[in-house]
Design a protein around this nucleic acid. Structure first.
Lengths: 122, 122
DNA sequence: CCCGTAATGATAACGGTTTATCGCCCCCTG
DNA sequence: CAGGGGGCGATAAACCGTTATCATTACGGG
């Protein structure tokens, strides 16, 4: 039986108001503003469950640990700030992308990452 | 004084015949075919030196550790095989890429990664 | 060819992320 | 509202990539 705990609700709220991919530390930090006692293990457990349920998806970006975002987002890419290390969404995408692979290579998906300084850091 | 050791020559040879970004394990593995006694520490040391000398460059791709490739390559991107985890070069690039960032974001560089199965795994 | 010294390599240690443990708490059903 | 059991959270521990240590090896100038 899946219980509806304060902690799990907090984690969901964090993602619904974030609008960008979050690291585990960010989830923990923002979640503790709602439930101050929130612990690391709980975040790991719930994130794993939410991914299994299809509510979150893993975002693999270079460096550090995995990030997570709401799974129901339309196709998009990411901007990674070299200064604050936060990830942001990029809503446009060059479309011919998957035709660039060498012959014989089968493309399943792609990721475009822009590196630089975000609006707050620039 | 910079000595020209068998190990360092082996590592350079590995990169010159690889033609794709290599993880540290791959460098070690291929290098040991030339110098069987080659150790991890030596690979880390020489790779770091070769990066400092500008002969190698770091390639940050999602997952696992850093990869390295020859530094003198022209602008290109990468294909990452979901099956064997090897990285390959993609020589074409959609050009308007850096204009995709949100307003106020300053783009320094970008990386386009295609995921799928390489020719050998497909 | 010899010697000084930088480089090697086996191994231990480190730092960061993720998972396991376990006593206590609190969500849910009856 | 009471009891059972899933969830929580502090902590320990597993894990992985990387770096430090140090006795030994071997490059290369003289």
């Amino acid at each position: 039986m899946q219980r509806d705990t304060r902690q799990r609700r907090a984690i969901r709220r964090v993602f619904m108001s974030a609008g960008r991919p979050l690291t585990l530390d960010e989830i923990l930090q923002y979640g503790q503003r709602i439930v101050p006692s929130l612990g690391v293990a709980t975040v790991y457990r719930n994130v794993k469950t939410l991914v299994r349920e299809g509510w979150l998806s893993r975002v693999k970006l270079p460096g550090g640990g995995l990030r997570y975002e709401l799974a129901d987002r339309p196709h998009h890419h990411h901007f990674l700030c070299n200064s604050c290390d936060q990830a942001f969404d990029v809503h446009r995408c060059p479309d011919e992308v998957e035709t660039l692979a060498p012959d014989g290579f089968q493309v399943d998906s792609h990721e475009l990452i822009l590196f630089g300084r975000c609006a707050a850091c620039a």
